[in-house]
Nucleic acid binder design. Structure first.
Lengths: 156, 156
DNA sequence: CGAATATGGTACCAAACTGGTACTATTTAT
DNA sequence: ATAAATAGTACCAGTTTGGTACCATATTCG
């Protein structure tokens, strides 16, 4: 749990594919075929990313989708925000006022701090980083680009 | 979205309350009353935390729950792990082998890196930090302990 | 002993969310 | 005109989640 939706997962993979040739455009059909994903899902996600301003779309035959900005100008935080909504571990951070205990909650300030830290990290990673191996993440250690189903341990 | 369950939310608040007097024990009934939470939920959560080894429990009249370790020896990562399961943004990180695209997925290694970074941060915060204001989070800025329903902006 | 009070475990339920599909309208290249 | 593409919305089944109920077990105290 604490998992992002498949929609977000798919969306980021799609964006990463588009980022490999940032000036080309692809139709939903092409992308679905290449990524081995169901076309209706791909279509839905591409529509969303277009509404959110991360993609440009072109209609008609030979239409398709293209990145709205260069890959190094699109952060992981923006992608998550477009696909999943505001990043917030706790509801009281995303929409203050929903919890009656807010005024005397002893941990809300700390959740805010934790949340900010994570978001700051996600804003430091761009789509062009995702096409390669992320550099400069503190203490990242070896992070092979193609783990190939290897057993990467979960660290929680 | 990307939100932790209320169970986790409640659980951490309960643990924080217990941490304020680490050697005392409280019954589920007392905790539910103080925190203004439904007793059955509180009870369910305390049982879980006991099974996961974060609490000690005592039965019978004058029974109750007590922290199994000192507050500075319990990290936020452990609490999340106990309440919510392993922390993983993507399913393919938590349980490798579930995604057929794993062997050629271009972003999995990077998700692993991102995940490790977040988990590392969560392991750096203990329950004793949660009872006060978290120190030393890089770039955290001001994080008032009692925001009191103030409008903290969401940063995604 | 036995009654009262606490936790342990499990099963259950309704409501919300998610992954995925279907259908119709609109745009545009040929 | 026709075909191929996106735009928008509505829908549906399966899962998850928040929350409750019930019964068993342990322990204190009279």
């Amino acid at each position: 749990m604490i998992r992002m939706s498949k929609q977000t997962d798919y969306g980021i993979v799609l964006l990463t594919h588009l980022a490999s040739t940032p000036d080309a455009s692809y139709s939903a059909r092409e992308l679905a075929a290449v990524m081995h994903l169901p076309l209706p899902m791909v279509s839905k996600i591409l529509k969303l990313l277009t509404r959110e301003g991360l993609l440009f779309s072109y209609r008609g035959p030979s239409g398709g989708y293209r990145l709205a900005r260069q890959p190094n100008q699109i952060t992981v935080a923006e992608m998550i925000n477009a696909l999943e909504g505001p990043f917030a571990f706790m509801e009281c951070i995303e929409t203050p006022g929903t919890c009656r205990q807010e005024s005397f909650c002893p941990v809300r300030g700390n959740w805010y701090t934790i949340n900010s830290t994570v978001v700051r990290a996600l804003r430091g990673i761009t789509l062009s980083d995702m096409t390669g191996t992320i550099p400069g993440m503190p203490g990242a250690g070896a992070s092979p680009q193609h783990p190939g189903g290897g057993q990467l341990p979960v660290i929680a």
